[in-house]
Computed example of a mutant assay.
Amino acid sequence: MLIQLSPRDLTWNFVRVSVNPDKTDWPLVVEHLVGIFNEPIRALLDRSRITLLETAFDIYGVPHEDLYVYGMRTNKTTAIFDGGNNFYFGVQGAHRVYVHYDKRKHITYDNSKRPLQGREPLPNQSISRIEIRHKRANQGEAITFQNAVELHKYFRPISIFHIPKTTQGFTVEEGLRLKVAKYESLIVATKKMPRRQKENFIGKLKKYRFFLFKDINFEQQLERALCRLIEI
């Protein structure tokens, strides 16, 4: 999470705080901010804005390159830090961007820059990290601690599928469309299919569906995370 206590006039002084409450000694950060401004942390956060809020969850035992998304266009980029692939859903300039990547590779890369005692244990199985990066609220206004818990209402109704490389039951054409979908997303790969053929293809995919975004209680997760920042 990136929090900015700032005026609109950039010539004035302002403070930016980038924090992951799970990996940061947040009470120490609060003590420092309160000491600077001589105000309670709730008062400071009430008039601050969140310039980046990431909602993330992990899927264990599933290689991220076997995950497919239906409902949004996909952009694929190569992550320079580890040579893996990042998959982005939605337009880069949108209010929120969806991304999934290989978390195990990311941990390996981070550990390569840390001293031995500060390294994170490396999981013995694949981990796919899925993030929703919120940059602005629904109408383009700044994210605040008041409207942040409403962000989940504007998630796209996308589905996540796990389709292993050894999957049987797809025709040759459907297999080719799956390869295209890896770079262009399922929604693009099925765009010009005849209606009945498309319905049959999507029907086959349903048995590989992991979940729908609407089935996840993001509201509760966001509310708990924000409360942890205030209730010290």
Rank of each mutant, 00 (worst) to 15 (best):
Y183V: 12
E31T: 03
N13M: 12
T78C: 05
L116E: 14
E131S: 08
F161W: 03
E223V: 07
N75Q: 14
G140Y: 06
L33R: 02
H152G: 10
I143H: 03
H64Q: 15
G61R: 11
A181R: 03
M193S: 10
S6F: 10
T190Y: 12
V97P: 04
T171S: 15
K23Q: 12
P27L: 04
L33S: 03
L28S: 08
K204N: 02
D215C: 02
L52P: 01
C227Q: 12
F81V: 02
R209V: 04
K76I: 13
K23V: 08
Q197N: 09
D66I: 06
Y109P: 02
T144F: 13
F155P: 05
K23M: 11
I163S: 00
A79C: 08
V34I: 02
N13W: 14
I132P: 00
D22I: 02
N217E: 09
Q125R: 13
R177M: 11
L222N: 12
E173A: 14
K113E: 08
Q125L: 12
I160V: 14
N138K: 12
N147R: 14
E199F: 10
V91W: 10
N85S: 07
D66V: 06
Y154L: 04
I36R: 06
E31A: 07
E184R: 15
N111T: 08
I158M: 01
H106M: 15
Q92T: 11
R96M: 13
H106F: 14
V15H: 03
Y70C: 00
R47W: 05
R177W: 10
